[in-house]
Design a protein around this nucleic acid. Structure first.
Lengths: 119, 119
DNA sequence: TGACAATATGCGCATATGCGCATATAAAGC
DNA sequence: GCTTTATATGCGCATATGCGCATATTGTCA
């Protein structure tokens, strides 16, 4: 039982990445394909500082990939499973929160597999 | 995009429950069936205070159910999806962490659907 | 080289979180 | 009623986390 600790620690960190509204927004922004930091900033409404920091954290956890091109940095979801995870939970929660308003339509973005738009 | 905030907030809280090693241990202890606080204490090695508090938090988030019987309180996983979620992520992480040691065998408990041993 | 654009980071603050300790509450048995 | 057992909770502490601000870093272009 004790030797499972590293697993639980790592998994906790993994879930911890998703335990933040701003990071979920970022995931939501990235799940349709890679975006630059600025694009994510515009889409999420968060500040550049925070988006950058959150993306760095997500990258440290292996949740997103990083691709530099000139002055810009493109981030993308590293693991499609992550998006799937978010999608399923978000959909379920969205349904729970709002039984009749068609809020779920907004979550459609989480539905398709993330397209890797490589350059 | 702004009206999705409540969804992201709730989902973040949901993931937040799983973003803690001790709580994952508790999930692991409960996923085979309901247990009393003391049983969870023994199985996880955490203190009674913390187990109680974590269980309370998990109950507040609707992750576990509570059943009182005399002086004892039985907790159980409320949502099988939660166990499934933990199982898949834990298995994947376990494999990542430890490519060859058979650590995964310990994770088997997460595999079967949680048995509801109602009284 | 110098100005500009895109991204990252150090610092400080406010708040959240997990924990241990002691203690409160609740139920059972004498 | 008193003691014992099982669980919950108030308090304080140490640390973690998210944020804003200013600034550093890196690359582009003139």
């Amino acid at each position: 039982m004790d030797e499972l600790d590293p697993v639980f620690n790592t998994v906790a960190g993994y879930f911890g990445v998703l335990a933040e509204p701003t990071r979920l927004k970022i995931m939501h922004a990235l799940c349709l394909g890679e975006k630059t930091v600025n694009q994510v900033v515009e889409e999420t409404g968060a500040t550049q500082t925070n988006v950058s920091r959150h993306l760095a954290l997500m990258h440290r956890h292996g949740v997103v990939t990083r691709r530099k091109e000139g002055t810009q940095v493109f981030y993308n979801v590293a693991d499609p499973t992550m998006v799937e995870l978010c999608r399923s939970v978000c959909n379920r929660i969205a349904i729970t929160i709002d039984e009749r308003r068609p809020l779920r339509k907004q979550m459609q973005k989480f539905l398709p597999a993330p397209k890797k738009r490589a350059a």
